[in-house]
């Protein structure tokens, strides 16, 4: 018989790069905070749901009366919250969800539940590198001693632990392959807004020509997703950020890509950098040199 399932919402991150609490942000059109939406998802599948916070942290907005588990492990990061919960109830399996995954919905959660077996870890394979996605995953009772042992050795990255120990890996369907992309910075947030509705974010200045011819370059996994490294394109997009969002939303070849950086004419450029005919625009995924 399968052990009972508890839900754990991880909201103890410091949101350092975002500069404000990600759990309290409203990212979806229903006007609810990320924490509220994620709690509702967990409540739909779990007998009991808990909110993971670090010591001294205020409860994010929209969480109601959910029971709170404060980090009782000093290793930091999401592992501290996961270990605290599993020690609280070692007989249960835990459905763990981070509060900064706005694209995860009931369909994604039900796929995860359907794929669950007796493995210590059940997780989706990253659409990007095939490694397990640890922050929308099920941790069975057998995971606890494994996590304790890694934590004792100073290994605190659940993705690395899962990869090393072996997880039951599920594939995301093509239509949901970007479902586990997260939001880390104000730029990610701005991109997500445009990703959801690129047309609304691109008011065209009056009198401008309707399209500009732009030279595009792609690097790393973006080049692989796009299927090319260079191309010429005529676009009505007024800024580099809108151009990226349009390409991502329109044909789906590239994803929302947290941390994407832009260059215009071989200089770093912010998302609101205006485009002009003849520009060379380069899209860069997060760097991995060294």
């Amino acid at each position: 018989m399968k052990p009972p399932l508890r839900g754990l919402l991880l909201a103890g991150g410091r949101s350092t790069r975002m500069g404000r609490d990600k759990a309290s942000m409203i990212l979806r059109g229903n006007g609810q905070t990320q924490a509220a939406n994620a709690l509702r998802l967990l409540e739909g599948s779990c007998a009991e749901v808990f909110l993971s916070l670090r010591e001294g942290q205020e409860k994010p907005e929209g969480c109601g009366s959910v029971e709170i588990l404060r980090d009782a492990v000093s290793c930091g990061g999401p592992l501290a919250g996961i270990l605290t919960a599993m020690r609280h109830d070692p007989e249960s399996a835990w459905l763990v969800l981070a509060c900064d995954l706005p694209f995860v919905d009931a369909g994604v959660v039900s796929l995860l539940l359907a794929g669950r077996d007796d493995s210590p870890f059940t997780a989706f394979a990253s659409a990007f590198d095939g490694l397990p996605e640890p922050l929308c995953a099920i941790y069975g009772p057998a995971a606890l001693p494994i996590l304790e042992e890694h934590a004792a050795r100073g290994h605190v990255c659940p993705r690395h632990i899962m990869a090393e120990e072996g997880a039951r890996l599920l594939e995301l369907p093509a239509a949901a392959r970007h479902a586990l992309e997260n939001i880390n910075t104000p730029r990610d947030l701005e991109m997500m807004t445009r990703f959801s509705d690129p047309g609304a974010a691109a008011p065209e200045p009056a009198g401008e020509t309707p399209g500009r011819e732009i030279r595009l370059g792609w690097f790393g996994f973006l080049a692989e997703q796009r299927g090319r490294r260079e191309e010429m394109l005529v676009t009505p997009a007024g800024t580099v950020g809108v151009l990226f969002a349009e390409l991502a939303a329109r044909d789906g070849t590239v994803g929302f890509t947290p941390g994407v950086r832009f260059a215009v004419n071989d200089e770093f450029a912010p998302p609101d950098h205006p485009l002009k005919a003849g520009d060379k625009v380069v899209f860069m995924p997060p760097f991995s040199g060294g």
Binding site: G77, A80, V156, P285
Partner: peptide, 12 residues
């Protein structure tokens, strides 16, 4: 696979 930075390190 392509490698990207990992966000799951603890503050420690």
């Amino acid at each position: 696979s392509w490698i990207a930075g990992c966000d799951h390190a603890g503050s420690a």
